[in-house]
Amino acid sequence: MKNRIIFAAAFVLLGLLVILAPTVLFPVCESEMKMACFFTKKAEIGAGLVIAALGVIYFFLKNKDIRLGISIAQFLNAGLVLAFPAKLTGLCKMSDMACRVKTYPALIVLSVLLALTAAANIVFLIKSESEK
């Protein structure tokens, strides 16, 4: 129960932060033209929603195997959070633009935190399974 509450809360929080980072907390470049970072913002909103939704689902599941699966998915989602700005949708080309100065670092931090949380949960679940 404790594990479910802690990790579900962590996933939901990180998912919300992934949504808020490029929109409110460290917004991408403001421009009338739709630049690369605009699409990264959209993609991150989607990724954040999925992460948060998986967090909510995680809370209601008792089966440890499914929870393990969700944790693995979250670990891969962490890669996606990073891959959008780094490779898939990209950012503005100039390195002094807001999206490179603020949004990208924030997404790096969030992605690493999500990967660490998911990895810790995977190890925890596998260990508790083998102790049975």
């Binding site: 470049c29 421009s31 033209m33 630049m35 690369a36 503005c92 080309k93 100039m94 002094d96 633009m97």
Partner: peptide
């Protein structure tokens, strides 16, 4: 901008 639209150079 250089190339696309990112910013002035």
């Amino acid at each position: 901008s250089a190339d696309c639209c990112s910013s002035e150079v």
